[in-house]
Amino acid sequence: MRKLIYFSLVIAICACADDSANPIGGLSGTGTGGSLASFLVTNNNLYVLAGDELLTYNLENENRLLYTSSLKLPSLLETIAPYENYLFLGSSNAVHFLNRDNPDQPQLISTYQHFTACDPVVAKGSIAYSTIRSTGCRGATSGPDLLDAIDISDISNPRVLYSRFVDAPYGLAINDDFLFVCENGGISVFSTSSTNEPVFVANNKIGDGVAYDIILKDDFLIVVTSEGIFNVTYDLAGNMQILGQITS
């Protein structure tokens, strides 16, 4: 019995030491980026945006970076997001839809053109949502800031369903409840349930900074702002509450 207690103690101490020394060490698998990410890791691949090129690496051998392909596209690439078997690339004047039937060598399916602007993309069902920000975006000193809904039920022929003005949008995220858009300094909440048209529900300031991007986590949002990160909950009226934060 005493041995067992000693043993448990040793294990407990090791576990504690492990936790503090190796914050990443205890974890496996892949993580999740925000919608502004330019790096994406999937099962066995790393996708990286480099100027107007998508670089693909195979990671099956973890002790090396095996370059497998690059795909040149006609515009400056800014964001990458996975969706089903596709990749969505936001660029300076278009959203590119790619397939990864061969994950080592993604192929271009179609392109949705817009103005010169910055534009992350998310999707739910057969609709992709993209914010198109001209404000403060390289190469787009004028032009509108928009939230576009794009029908991708036929991904080889993306069609705009709806376009609405927003204010200086950045990242966005979508779940079964709402579409969340970093906009106008805070987070605008849109309902997408009834129509193709995102219906504005509420705008929430998060602290005193400007909200840039969101990662959805179970029942709350992780928001990065110019001040740092915030954990935020929301109710079905779209009102948000800060749970915790790390700021300067």
Binding site: P23, I24, G26, L27, T30, G31, T32, G33, G34, L36, A37, S38, Y212, D213, I215, K217, I222, V224, T225, S226, E227, G228, I229, I246, T247, S248
Partner: peptide
């Protein structure tokens, strides 16, 4: 160190990389 010029975020389990 203080968060001074926050950029992108990445979530790995319950670990946030900022």
């Amino acid at each position: 160190r203080p968060v001074d010029n926050a950029g992108k975020i990445y979530l790995y389990g319950d670990l946030i990389l900022l």
